[in-house]
Design a protein around this nucleic acid. Structure first.
Lengths: 195, 195
DNA sequence: AATGTCTGTCAGTGATTACTGACATCATAA
DNA sequence: TTATGATGTCAGTAATCACTGACAGACATT
């Protein structure tokens, strides 16, 4: 964890994210965070005033909030299997970039109100986009027309479930990798939803 | 939270599970747990000796560890859509019964080693059962024969994702309920996997 | 009546922890 | 050189918290 080329604030923020995502807000001391950042506890408080504000700053600074909307506009080609793969890839990219903050926001949601809403926005956005995409595909005759919202939700849940189990870490399901999962899950849904 | 007809130990265990699942192990004091149980802090320590042992006892006492294996043996009828619905129902029943303990074990896994393995056994069992079921169905000619393990895993992930989002609580996705989700997700996979 | 069991109250201890103030050090810029 | 800003050290405070011992009351069993 040698981030010596970064500024002190960023070193503290990253150390905080790493430690708190692993052991929880109440499971980490300001002393530990400062030491992990290679700085003194005093410096931590000079920069952020309180432990709470330190974590809030970490969210403001390191939460990637780009809209999924934009990412899809230019990428979708109205070919179901290809597009589902794009959706899956983009989803896992964004979610994995935010993994540690998402973990913190779910674990410590009671103590850190408002954080969960911010990380929950990505799934909600995706659900909306995907539902609209399914409706449009149905109108084009390229998809069965039954329950687009629930279909989108089911696809999302499969991706979300895989994300939560952190296939890349390989701890929960050692012999299942992310890339093959994305392909197989996309294939399944494409086959199920094609007329 | 009036469990006055229960013994003191059980009142304490249930109060501990409720509070810790909401606010985390380090976010709850022994004082709070005792008060929630309608007892004094002293009584808590007389019964369990330490906070740690209190939680461990809660797991031993309230973790429903029945094997999915048994539940399926008598229920499956080798009809894909019907069986997938049975699997989904059974899965959510068991997982929801264990929801609070599962939440504790994932949130506080670092501080409570060994707990996660115990709650993770249900999904692992289900994956194995479902994979074998898919293989057998393939041999009967009732399912496409491609990648049974990954197909089982994808189905499981969709159920797991829905479980994590606690549809019954209706907080994350207010307009999506568990029952319709189970039916739609099962329909999707049945259509995708039928020859 | 006597005994044992369960519980509460009270008053504490020792450890941890977020957070502070005073002062020193050191590099860089003016 | 001097001033400035960022940092470290040290010693400390006030609060919290897991946990304890001593004593007493309530209740059931014998």
């Amino acid at each position: 964890m040698e981030n010596n080329n970064l500024g002190s604030s960023d070193r503290l923020l990253l150390a905080a994210i790493n430690l708190i995502s692993e052991r929880g807000y109440n499971g980490v001391t300001t002393q530990e965070i400062a030491t992990a950042a290679g700085l003194s506890e005093k410096t931590l408080f000079r920069h952020f005033g309180s432990k709470q504000k330190l974590l809030e700053s970490a969210f403001d600074r390191y939460h990637y909030a780009e809209e999924m909307r934009k990412l899809f506009k230019e990428k979708l080609v109205w070919e179901l299997e290809e597009d589902l793969l794009t959706v899956s890839r983009t989803y896992h990219e964004i979610m994995n970039r935010n993994r540690k903050l998402i973990q913190i926001s779910t674990r410590d949601e009671v103590q850190l109100p408002g954080f969960k809403e911010r990380t929950q926005q990505h799934p909600l956005q995706l659900l909306e986009i995907l539902t609209n995409y399914f409706i449009a595909m149905g109108e084009k005759g390229k998809m069965i027309r039954t329950d687009p919202k629930m279909q989108a939700f089911t696809f999302m849940m499969s991706q979300f479930g895989a994300f939560v189990n952190n296939l890349e870490a390989g701890k929960n399901y050692p012999d299942i990798a992310l890339e093959p999962f994305m392909h197989e899950s996309v294939k399944i849904f494409a086959r199920a939803l094609t007329p």
